[in-house]
């Protein structure tokens, strides 16, 4: 699903964000990428979404070597990845329903499909009664659930969550994690970037740990028993 082969990334100014990183995430896996601020977590997300290109090495996403994907092909790769962010990134002038439908309109889904899919997703994240609310009328946890519903709207093969619990209290954080776990159980690969060790320890999933751009541990072989 995602493969990093000897990937290094240097930002303009000489700041080395990743140094010779190797890992592989298989279809259906649930993986955390953890590390302190500046460890290179966000760079991994940007590389997977091809917002940036590596200085060295190869990044493969869903079988595509991203170096060979041109600018016209990028949107089609991104359509297979649902993204969730710490700051939710919802459109404040549109209702909960419209925010989710927006993701489907962008990929030119039919109105009929939108009418079926959006209520399904709202029910799944437990917000059926909030479809006409504006994002600012919802709590942080609810907004993140809308963001997750939007990420799932186009039935992606993978969910990429960048600090999804960063702005949430422990109860809401756990609720989001449970939802992600449910999505994963239905076959969607989940990659969560976080520095929330509490969550990571509770979930007992595969954890890739970064420190200053270097991969320092990956508990893939040890049955996810390592504590972060």
């Amino acid at each position: 699903m995602v493969q990093f082969n000897s990937v290094s990334m240097v930002y303009p100014g000489g700041n080395k964000a990743l140094d010779d990183i190797d890992f592989r995430i298989r279809k259906g896996e649930f993986v955390f990428i953890v590390g302190a601020s500046g460890s290179g977590k966000s760079t991994i997300i940007k590389l997977v979404l091809k917002e940036i290109s590596p200085a060295k090495g190869m990044v493969r996403v869903m079988g595509n070597d991203l170096a060979s994907v041109n600018s016209k092909g990028i949107p089609y790769i991104r359509r297979q990845i649902g993204t969730v962010f710490q700051d939710f990134r919802l459109l404040k002038d549109r209702s909960v329903y419209e925010n989710i439908a927006f993701a489907m309109r962008v990929v030119e889904a039919s109105t009929r499909d939108i009418k079926i899919r959006v209520p399904e997703l709202l029910s799944m994240v437990g917000l059926s009664n909030k479809e006409n609310c504006l994002p600012q009328e919802l709590s942080g946890g609810e907004q993140q659930r809308v963001a997750l519903a939007r990420a799932l709207a186009n039935r992606p093969s993978m969910i990429l969550a960048d600090e999804p619990t960063g702005n949430l209290d422990p109860a809401n954080s756990m609720e989001i994690m449970k939802l992600l776990e449910r999505v994963n159980q239905q076959g969607t690969t989940v990659l969560v970037v976080t520095h929330d060790n509490e969550i990571v320890n509770q979930m007992r999933k595969r954890v890739i740990t970064l420190n200053r751009g270097i991969l320092i541990s990956d508990n893939e072989e040890s049955g996810y028993s390592n504590e972060f």
Partner: peptide, 16 residues
């Protein structure tokens, strides 16, 4: 700006 950034992440094409 915000809407465009979201559209990019969701996979909207250039033309769209």
């Amino acid at each position: 700006k915000e809407e465009i950034a979201i559209m990019r992440l969701i996979g909207a094409t250039d033309h769209f």
